[in-house]
Design a protein around this nucleic acid. Sequence first.
DNA 1: ATATTCTTCTGATCCAGATCAATGCGTCCA
DNA 2: TGGACGCATTGATCTGGATCAGAAGAATAT
Lengths: 262, 262
Amino acid sequence: MPAPDLYRARMKAASRARTNSPAPFPQAAGSNCSAHNCHSCDVRSLSLCDALADSELSRLDRITRRHRTPAGATLIREGDPMTFACNITSGTVRLSRLLHDGRRQVMGFLFPGDFIGLTRRNRFVFSAEAITDTDCCNFALEDLETLSKDNPRLQRKLYEMACSELDAAQEQMLLLGRKSALERVASFLLEVRQRQLQQGDDEDCIILPMTRGDIADYLGLTLETVSRSFSRLRQEQVIEICETYRVDLLDCPRLQDLSGNS
Amino acid sequence: MPAPDLYRARMKAASRARTNSPAPFPQAAGSNCSAHNCHSCDVRSLSLCDALADSELSRLDRITRRHRTPAGATLIREGDPMTFACNITSGTVRLSRLLHDGRRQVMGFLFPGDFIGLTRRNRFVFSAEAITDTDCCNFALEDLETLSKDNPRLQRKLYEMACSELDAAQEQMLLLGRKSALERVASFLLEVRQRQLQQGDDEDCIILPMTRGDIADYLGLTLETVSRSFSRLRQEQVIEICETYRVDLLDCPRLQDLSGNS
DNA sequence: ATATTCTTCTGATCCAGATCAATGCGTCCA
DNA sequence: TGGACGCATTGATCTGGATCAGAAGAATAT
């Protein structure tokens, strides 16, 4: 995504929030927004669907509902009944949870290939909001269960995804429990870099579609502290802030040191 | 466990740490410490093994190695290769991770029925230490994989356990990222209560086998702050500290309010 | 153009919780 | 029996990051 678009997307998102327009999701069955099918899917190798052989894909195709969610709109509201799971195929999504008085914890940012639905709760405890325009495939939970029941590879893949998420969550617990502000921000930049390498963007230039406030709520800080940490990393020549939402990692080894991961 | 024993166990643990005696784990095959088998297992219904029918238990029995770990000894060291998984059958275990400069994050406390091994890493990134004398069953990872390969219920159970862990980890991320000290301590007490209800101890009197320092490292606080929070809850008649490691929850609704979970 | 909105950045001040320090209690061991 | 040790509690002080308060940039709306 070209850089100026990102800013525009953010603005659109903000304006949508202002006018409080209804979230376009979930939509009625059949209202597919992007010409797309499982066989030609860009992110199949990154996602759940990687567990299915070509021959099984048509069965998946039949239970899939595809949706486009514009930037700023809500995919899932905290408290919604957990009736479907969801696979992000393009865009960036923010998962967040609120405390009664408005304090917010961002549980994670989702990129193409990421999956929502690894939980045993019967309601979503977080909301999912599109940071940029987002495409996703969702499956009724019962369909997915039927499918996984006679597909051990799919069941196994779900297990592996849950374990990976768990590894990441434990990393985040260490960060939130014991790291300083600068360590958190350094860790975050390296995490985003790692994610973008997986996506095939192999530059040391990372794109941050989320705001400083989003980052702060992910790292258990305030946006001012995040901003100051960015500035300090810039002053120390560890990063260059090309644009607000685009950062060059000039010195990754140093960033690694600063991240606290020995 | 009667209360005074707990104090003694802690002392033993401390003395073991002092004299730096070697961890008695992993032991050679066959060195079973407790007379115990899968069919008569107390915690089967709480654990992984619940997924297996009676008829399949003997197969599990054959790949199981049982160990007793005395209080204060180490079950797993950070960095050990992940060659086995482990099921706690009695006792309490602390999982913790260290930052290079000694800062510690306790990732969780394990009770009977809890499982270690839901990860995709090939090395343990945390250490596991027995807080009280602990019995566990462990399985070579490859045995477990063989078993789960032709046992969909076991595979499914592993998936569900990973999802439960993930739900808990997200709860903890909210706590570590956004809750105040008092909210953290209140949440912790309620969490322990919940765990002890599962174990069948249905009193509003909870046992805390871990030290204030352990609790602090679990909650991202210092032990002084934890101690002060306990004192404040006592002053406000929300809890009664019967003994250091035994707490009565006098007013659970109030504790719930104070925990920040609306 | 100009006003407006959203966001970031930076400086000044404040405070919750960390750190430092002292006391007491229970257990172990010589 | 006394001293050492581990742990918990409480008080005094300090500080990293929160909060409060502008200023300025970037884009949209008019």
